[in-house]
Simulated scan of single mutants.
Amino acid sequence: MDSFLSQPLTARIATHGPAVRPVWFLWEDGAFWVLTGPWARLFDHVRSHPRVALVVDVCDIATGLVQQVIARGDAELVPFDVPRGRRKLVRYLGTDESRWDERFVHYLHDNPSERGTAWLRLVPDSLTAQDLSYSSAG
């Protein structure tokens, strides 16, 4: 599961409402870490209703690879730390910050408290991993 979650995949997180949105994440220290802040509805949703579900999956019809991880629990908003932010962004954007879109660079160089940048941290109370792969007809 750790190997699967170390890939730069897009997760979908569901909050009260219901509302579902795609997110980049970091799986670290037994938790999912998602960058957010007061500019995002996700921030307000979690602040008022912390119960969330998150799914990370792949489905490749050509090869038959079908894998998923589903997590549920109460998310919390915690202070943003730049080293963890860098680890998360490097996995999606690569190590060369000069090639990054400006909006991502700002997360690492602006004062997070001024922007309100925070982490949504989900330590799942339910975590299910399934490999539903099949042999593709060839």
Rank of each mutant, 00 (worst) to 15 (best):
T10A: 10
V20M: 14
L127Q: 08
V23L: 11
G30H: 06
S136E: 13
T117D: 15
L65R: 15
V23A: 09
I13C: 00
F32W: 11
S98T: 14
F80E: 10
V66I: 09
D96L: 01
T10D: 04
W33D: 09
R72I: 04
G116M: 00
D110A: 15
D74T: 04
N111E: 13
I70H: 11
F25V: 06
S133D: 03
R115T: 11
P8L: 05
R86D: 11
R121L: 11
T95E: 15
P8W: 02
C59Y: 13
W39A: 15
L26F: 10
H49G: 05
P79L: 06
E102K: 14
R115G: 02
R121I: 09
A40F: 14
Y92R: 09
E114S: 07
Y107P: 08
A62T: 10
A71K: 00
A137S: 13
D44I: 07
D101T: 12
G30K: 06
V69W: 06
G64W: 06
H16W: 08
T128M: 11
V66D: 01
N111T: 11
G17R: 00
L127E: 07
S98D: 07
V90S: 03
V82K: 13
R86Q: 12
I70A: 13
R12T: 02
Q7C: 03
R91Q: 14
D29R: 09
T128Y: 01
A53E: 10
C59V: 11
G37H: 09
P18F: 04
I61G: 08
L54P: 01
E102R: 14
G85S: 04
V90R: 12
Q68H: 10
F4K: 08
S113I: 03
P79Y: 09
H16I: 10
V46D: 07
A137Q: 13
